[in-house]
């Protein structure tokens, strides 16, 4: 069914390239998160998919049909805008049924379908309300219901949850994911929040400066970042410059033998060592460092260690809190099998 495939997709604004040669194939029914820092071109890429921007180069095809030149209103996609773009002059039900009434669907049918969609997003009986009478979370659901009204081939959402407070956002992430699984609609969600991406996605596309940095399943991207940018952007990573040799690396003049479980993505020579905070151990051995701060977050304890101008973060469960004090000198070790060596 819906296979989405982008080929060399590029968008320039004047001399500035916002989306730079994006080529991806996305299988039918996937939940895709476009993840990247603000300004990296996520919205632009989504708007290219929707037909709201014309690509400077490249092709978009859905189910093998080239839609690159198809105007937005003929693509048959659903979209949820960052501002939601709900029509203030229409009721909730009229908003949800808008894509149907535009296509000349009879009034009764529109009403029936609106009720159906509203119950899908748990807003039964709210059809008669005006948009300004709804809470933020309810508006969110209306926008989602409206985007799904025509059973779109492709469902696009631009930072749909960013306006919600933290609790509601986490709740809606789960709800959106469950809804998508139930309907099986191929979905692309833009987000700059890596937790959100890891929670919802089948496939995460990490972008930076208009280019795709990595495509993969959430845990793949988290455990096995393709480069230093992805390692730094997804979760917290400790990044240290190192020298890659035969089966070993040299960090601050100290040799560390690599384990078969460690991942090496770099060529021999200058490289970057990436280790997650939970994979750092403090001991008497290892790289010498000085405790600069201990942050007790309740559910976990962060220990910051200063090593030759680099700040290294170690993460502990509350029960495993090490007996260290600020100013104390310790050794930093990396758990074998968790180390990733990336190109410099």
């Amino acid at each position: 069914m819906t296979e989405l495939s982008l080929h060399g997709l590029t968008k320039r604004f004047g001399s500035f390239t916002a989306v730079d040669g994006v080529s991806i194939d996305i299988p039918d029914g996937s939940f895709v998160c476009l993840l990247g820092p603000s300004g990296c071109g996520k919205t632009t890429l989504l708007r290219l998919l929707a037909g709201l921007e014309e690509p400077s180069a490249g092709r978009i095809s859905v189910d093998g049909e080239d839609v690159t030149g198809t105007p937005a209103h003929l693509r048959g996609f659903g979209m949820v805008f960052q501002s939601l773009a709900l029509f203030p002059h229409l009721t909730v039900a009229e908003n949800v049924a808008y894509p149907l009434s535009i296509r000349g669907t009879p009034r009764d049918e529109c009403r029936r379908r609106a009720d159906e969609l509203l119950s899908l997003v748990q807003l039964e009986g709210m059809g008669g309300r005006r948009i300004h009478q709804l809470s933020g979370g309810q508006r969110q659901r209306v926008a989602i219901a409206r985007g799904l009204a025509i059973e779109p081939r492709l469902f696009l959402l631009d930072e749909p949850l960013s306006a919600l407070d933290a609790n509601l956002r986490e709740h809606m992430q789960v709800e959106l994911r469950q809804l998508q699984q139930r309907l099986g609609v191929t979905t692309v969600v833009v987000t700059h929040d890596q937790k959100e991406a890891l929670t919802m996605a089948d496939i995460v596309i990490v972008m930076d400066k208009g280019r795709v940095q990595q495509v993969g399943a959430p845990m793949e991207v988290y455990r096995d970042p393709a480069n230093a940018f992805v390692a730094g952007f997804i979760g917290t990573s400790n990044l240290l410059p190192c020298e890659l040799g035969e089966g070993e690396i040299t960090v601050s003049g100290r040799r560390i033998a690599l384990d078969p479980g460690d991942r090496v993505k770099a060529r021999p020579g200058e490289a970057v060592l990436s280790v997650r905070p939970e994979d750092i151990r403090l001991s008497a051995d290892g790289l010498p460092g000085k405790i600069s701060f201990v942050r007790d977050l309740g559910e976990s304890v962060q220990v910051l260690v200063e090593h030759e101008g680099h700040e290294i973060t170690a993460l502990y469960a509350p029960g495993a809190r090490p007996e260290v004090a600020v100013g104390e000198t310790v050794g930093v070790e990396f758990v074998p099998g968790t180390r990733v060596v990336l190109p410099a």
Partner: peptide
């Protein structure tokens, strides 16, 4: 007026006149 309102209507299938 939020320009996204117009774009939203477009993505939902409305012609320019609609």
């Amino acid at each position: 007026m939020d320009p996204a309102l117009v774009e939203a209507a477009r993505t939902m299938g409305a012609t320019r006149g609609q």
